[in-house]
């Protein structure tokens, strides 16, 4: 296939835009997936834990 400037422009102007929207939708689903709520809550609290040693 001939990879010309026009081919790249075509690709960038069509699916080049939509795959980003696709990604964004996946992220939104991941963020608001109900099962993840508990994990995120734990993550935001755990860093305040005052124990300064690696876990074994």
């Amino acid at each position: 296939m001939d990879l010309t400037h026009e081919t790249l422009v075509e690709a960038a102007k069509t699916w080049g835009l939509f795959y980003l929207i696709g990604f964004s939708l996946c992220v939104l689903v991941y963020t608001f997936w109900p099962a993840n709520r508990e994990r995120f809550d734990r993550a935001k609290r755990n860093i305040l834990d005052e124990d300064d040693q690696p876990w074994t």
Binding site: F23, S24, V27, Y30, F40, K44, R45, I47, L48
Partner: peptide
């Protein structure tokens, strides 16, 4: 996202929002 909660001794306001802003910035 690490030193602010540590110093303020409060968890970040919204962890979900931090994930959304992360991916927003990378995209």
């Amino acid at each position: 996202y690490y030193y602010l909660p540590k110093r303020a001794e409060r968890p970040i306001f919204s962890y979900r929002l931090s994930i959304l802003s992360f991916w927003g910035i990378t995209f």
